[in-house]
Computed example of a mutant assay.
Amino acid sequence: MSYGRLAGLPHVDERTPAVLVLAGPVTRDEVTGLCDDVRALLEVTGAGVVVCDVGGLGPPGLAVVDLLARLELAARRAGGRIRLRDPDPALHALLDLVGLRFQMEGEAEQREPALGVEEEVEPGQPAV
């Protein structure tokens, strides 16, 4: 029995996200092209995540925050997300300061505690 070739890249699936390497500094004119690249990577790979390697962006600033926010917006509009790889600790702090939360590569996802799990209480006190 023979099967037809599947569409897309055979070695990429939902567990193998595409990688977009961002080398800085990125000018305002380049932002639109990078947003197009994120949308194209999501479409071509079928993955729900594009990993953005931000290690080469240079010193963090509001221009970098703006770029990442626009890339995340483009990815969400295309039905996906971006995940940051190798962020500078200062960039991580700046993103926290402005209230933007990005998934970082290597970080465990934050989830709700399992149902039915109770916190430990002092002896003699009723469980909450």
Rank of each mutant, 00 (worst) to 15 (best):
M1V: 10
M1R: 12
S2V: 10
Y3D: 13
G4N: 12
R5F: 11
R5W: 09
L6Q: 14
P10G: 07
R15G: 12
T16D: 04
V19S: 05
L22Q: 02
L22N: 02
P25N: 10
P25V: 05
R28G: 00
E30N: 00
G33I: 00
G33D: 03
L34P: 00
V38F: 03
R39T: 13
R39V: 14
A40V: 08
L42P: 04
L42S: 06
L42R: 01
T45H: 02
G46L: 06
G46E: 09
G48Y: 08
V50M: 06
V50H: 02
V50E: 02
V51A: 13
V51S: 07
V51M: 05
C52F: 05
V54G: 01
G55T: 02
G55F: 00
G56F: 09
G58F: 06
G58V: 04
P59V: 15
P59C: 09
P60M: 02
P60T: 02
V65K: 04
A69F: 10
R70T: 02
E72S: 14
E72P: 00
A74P: 01
R76K: 12
A78S: 15
A78K: 09
G79V: 12
G79S: 06
G79W: 08
G80H: 07
I82Y: 01
R85C: 05
R85H: 13
D88Q: 07
D88N: 11
P89R: 09
P89M: 06
L91F: 05
A93S: 14
L94E: 09
L94C: 08
L95P: 05
L97V: 13
V98W: 12
L100I: 09
L100N: 10
R101W: 10
R101T: 15
F102C: 05
E105I: 04
E107N: 13
E107D: 15
E112V: 13
P113Q: 01
A114K: 10
E120I: 15
E120W: 15
E122N: 03
G124R: 07
Q125H: 12
Q125G: 00
P126F: 10
